[in-house]
Write a protein that binds this DNA or RNA. Structure first.
Lengths: 383, 383
DNA sequence: TCCCATCATGGTAGCGCTAACACAAAGATC
DNA sequence: GATCTTTGTGTTAGCGCTACCATGATGGGA
């Protein structure tokens, strides 16, 4: 063993010598001299190969050696060079993150989750905005021709049948983020929309509300139906028959939320709570309520869904459901990587699905119904 | 020349031969066999080096050769391997994108601009969220120790003196995005906040308004003062003396916007227009106006600043100023790269500054003042 | 006791690309 | 015409890392 060590050292010394002879070469090549696997090896007294094994957590390294290497890494503050790694590894995954909804407040979460995970796994992420499903189709086609390995399709793209069809056709791996008909795709991450809506409804009921209004989301998105079903089920389970007059159609937009809220608030007796299928519509509901001089939450409880920036920007801040968007995209990225790998090895890979937990974020827009109910609308004070 | 070509061909053939002898090697190494620079060279009948030159747009390549190579590239659908490129290039820039403001609607634009540019230039981007200036400080310290090359500091981080001080101390290159005191930093990108506010004010005045209210932004951010000054200057230039009662302090938050709007709308005679220093405050102003049964824009014009998602979500959609956030971050990334390079070559680099053009986005929240002014508040119809 | 698995490690040969130099051919300069 | 430049191209030697095999040391079963 010492014999070998010596050999390594000698080689290292020789390299340094030749450096002295040709100083320009190395100095010019690498601007900042970050420590390499070789430096670590010299420090730990082993070969670069062993260091590589330790870094990659491979088996067959003696515990003692591993410790030595780890200490050397810590001492030199070594970090592996990604470029070299993926070059030598030979694997170069490219996956595209498509998104519609350019103003979606969850976009930042969405990007962050994907980005972080991609950089951790040396995956090249291509972020693609598209204004419409049609544009998505053409972009996907182009990328597929360039040989992209996978697509991440967030809602509402994964609600679009044409997009789904195309994704199925291409031989890239596609994963939906959000409640899509994942059939044909290679996987999907989502929360349990039904249960989340159920929980929120139950939360409202537990507060004491009996007349609860509901604004449905865009009928073209699958989430809308699931949320509505959750609402209905919770009402029924609480022994309350949902008043069909208090269930109105919306389209996930602020505008549609305003219209819905206007309708709901002109029903008699008025609902004491309104559960909107997303935050934009909930915010619109708050605005309409305020215009009618109803105080939120004292005269009326308003709850949203999604926990977008809107929810915590307006006043009062909205009680809503938070989706773990970041974890969802992170999972999507790793899942794609996993599927592609197993596809390259075994040939085929079975689709994966993941349901992540949501959170009911309670803020300031809900309260027990006021006792003096009915026509008594307390005037909103100026502050 | 034909003599040389032949040599190249021969070599290429030999390579293929050895491939045949050791088929596992290459096949196993690279999963998908993307064309390499060598394939292009063979196709074009020249050396890989020449192909490299063409790709990198270097001089000293005959026009005819360049065409040949370009055609080969097109034919093979070749795309350079990023990993190999940055490995061989020896340069590995790592820059951190710090951000506070987690709910900032411009975050997605912000990320997109940076991401795109970073991937174009093979720069490794590290996205870092921080909840506070303190956290930013500690993160920056940690990253600096890890040897990061640069920081991108968007507002409000670049308004914080401590952050600025730290950035100056570290030997990474820091660039502000937004109106910071860029002194000491290596550069800044921004729009002309003064002129933008001036233009918006002028737009409002040109509509016929004379009593224009203004809600100032967070006093700790430099943009606030500049926007205020722009407002004042435009009023003065139009021969209108700004009524000090109609200039109220805000803090860029929705809540502060509500308070400001309440104050402004209780002044007599009421202003016929309110210019809020950002969209959140403008949205709050719309909400307050609605609560007072003032129609926007017929009874009162409300304008914002920034063109965040909020501006185009609420109803009516806000007339506002759009900053070219995407271009700004893109510029920041390339500027950092440029500065670092010239720092490594010449030793020192002069700071860079860039002012990008903004746009006044006219939507539905502004109109000429109604003729029946004063106490006549037309009731808002239900739709 | 010998042989063959098994383990821990080292050596070698690239991954795809570019920096640096080499070199021949064609002008430019005296 | 001899020398120096310039121009267009090729050759060589890596960048930092990992796949693949080779090797030497162990250990158990024949």
């Amino acid at each position: 063993m010492p014999e070998k060590l010596k050999r390594v050292y000698v080689k290292a010394m020789k390299m340094q010598d030749s450096d002295t002879k040709l100083p320009r070469r190395r100095a010019a090549r690498r601007g900042n001299s970050a420590p390499t696997i070789g430096d670590v090896a010299r420090e730990a007294g082993c070969s670069p190969m062993t260091v590589s094994r330790v870094i990659n957590g491979e088996a067959n390294v003696r515990e003692q050696t591993r410790e030595l290497v780890l200490e050397a890494i810590r001492k030199l503050n070594y970090a592996p060079n990604r470029a070299a790694r993926s070059l030598a590894g030979g694997e170069q995954l490219r996956i595209a993150l498509m998104f519609d909804n350019p103003s979606a407040s969850y976009l930042s979460e969405f990007l962050m989750g994907a980005l972080e995970e991609a950089s951790r796994n040396d995956i090249h992420l291509e972020v693609q905005r598209c204004e419409s499903a049609e544009e998505a189709l053409s972009i996907m086609g182009k990328l597929a021709k360039e040989g992209i390995d996978g697509f991440i399709l967030p809602s509402p793209l994964c609600d679009d049948q044409k997009v789904l069809d195309l994704a199925r056709e291409l031989d890239a791996v596609s994963i939906a983020v959000g409640p899509g008909k994942a059939e044909g795709l290679h996987g999907a991450v989502m929360i349990d929309e039904f249960q989340a809506a159920y929980d929120m409804t139950k939360h409202i009921i537990d507060l004491g509300h009996e007349r609860v209004g509901f604004i449905i989301g865009n009928p073209e998105q699958i989430a809308s139906g699931r949320r509505l079903n959750g609402f209905r089920a919770a009402m029924l389970d609480a022994g309350l028959t949902p008043d069909e007059e208090l269930i109105v159609q919306g389209r996930f937009t602020y505008r549609s939320g305003m219209a819905g809220a206007e309708r709901l608030l002109s029903v008699h007796p008025q609902p004491t709570a309104i559960f909107a299928s997303n935050d934009d519509m909930a915010a619109a509901t708050v605005a309409v309520a305020h215009r009618k001089h109803l105080d939120v939450p004292n005269d009326i409880t308003v709850c949203g869904f999604d926990d977008t920036a809107m929810a915590s920007t307006i006043w009062p801040e909205l009680t809503t459901i938070r989706q773990p968007i970041r974890e969802m995209t992170a999972w999507a990225v790793t899942a794609i990587a996993r599927i592609i790998r197993s596809k390259r090895t075994d040939g085929r890979a079975k689709p994966q699905q993941k349901i992540l937990p949501y959170t009911l974020v309670r803020r300031e827009s809900d309260a027990a119904p006021s006792l003096a109910r009915g026509s008594a609308n307390s005037l909103l004070s100026d502050r």
